[in-house]
Amino acid sequence: MPGGEGLTIPPDGLRLVVDPASGRVNATSVYVTADGAQYLIAPPGTARVDVGWTDTPPQ
């Protein structure tokens, strides 16, 4: 997939594309927050996730 390695999630065809070199999510049609909220993006749209990196897991 353009932008990295992709995963298509059935049955709705949701997409997740991750750049293997950086670990950055370059394209996704679904996003789940830490508290479990879900955001879906209708095709053909996608979103890119830009955040800071940490080696400390969430509490």
Rank of each mutant, 00 (worst) to 15 (best):
P10A: 09
T28K: 04
D12A: 13
P2M: 04
A34E: 05
L16T: 09
A37N: 07
R24V: 03
T28H: 04
V18M: 08
T54W: 00
D12W: 03
M1Q: 07
A34T: 12
P20T: 05
D50P: 08
A21W: 01
G4I: 06
R48S: 14
L14P: 04
G4K: 02
A27S: 07
D50Y: 09
V25I: 15
V51I: 11
P20V: 06
G3R: 03
V49L: 15
A47S: 12
Y31L: 09
V25E: 01
T8G: 05
Q59E: 13
I41M: 14
Q59H: 07
D12L: 12
A27Y: 00
A42W: 03
S29H: 01
V30Q: 07
D12F: 08
G6R: 02
G4N: 05
A21I: 03
Y31H: 04
G23Q: 03
Q38G: 05
T28P: 01
P58W: 00
Q59K: 11
L7P: 11
D19C: 12
M1R: 02
W53I: 13
D19K: 12
P2G: 06
D12V: 09
V32M: 06
I9W: 00
V25C: 08
P2E: 07
G4A: 09
P20Y: 04
T46M: 12
A27K: 04
V51D: 09
R15G: 07
T8W: 01
D50K: 12
G36K: 05
T54L: 03
G6P: 08
D50Q: 14
P11I: 06
N26M: 11
D12P: 04
S22V: 04
V51M: 13
G45L: 15
Y31T: 04
G23M: 03
V51W: 05
T46G: 10
G52N: 11
A37R: 13
V51H: 11
